[in-house]
Amino acid sequence: MEKVETLEKEGGVQVYELGYHIVSTVAEENLPKEVETLKAIVLKDGGSLISLGEPKLINLAYSMTKSVADIKKKFNTAYFGWLKFETKSELMPMIKKAVDANPLVLRYLLIKTVRENTLYTPKLNSVKVADKEAPKAKKSIKTDEKKATSLEDIDKSIDELVVSAE
């Protein structure tokens, strides 16, 4: 219950994500058009788009079937994309029906999610690299200073020697 309360906002507005597979028979030139139709379904009646993943052709882990006009078709590849959006929870049955009716959507997943980016990016590695680089740079500066001072000292000592010899 707590989880639902924290996810849902005032007025029944909630963040959702629609993950979808568009059938691989669609030409790549027509993909933006299909994405626009899905966007229009999702953003109907005052919804707002948060982020999206462009559809990419992927090999499916197992073959999926879709029957369109009483003809079953098998698919091993599909264009996978996703849309993260915010809308009223009352509109979800309508959105589900509309996506179900789309003959080019092979499969879809409609879930509740959070506004923030949920994809994990390894931050630790970048921190470690920066930490390692910083001390090296310091060391190199120190060595340069040392070299400079030592050269000056040598010059001075040579001058002193020359003077004493004269």
């Binding site: 499916l60 197992y62 499969r107 997943l109 879930i111």
Partner: peptide, 11 residues
């Protein structure tokens, strides 16, 4: 389980 359903991972 979601990834399996979407065919991103095998069952």
């Amino acid at each position: 389980k979601r990834a399996r359903f979407m065919g991103l991972l095998p069952y």
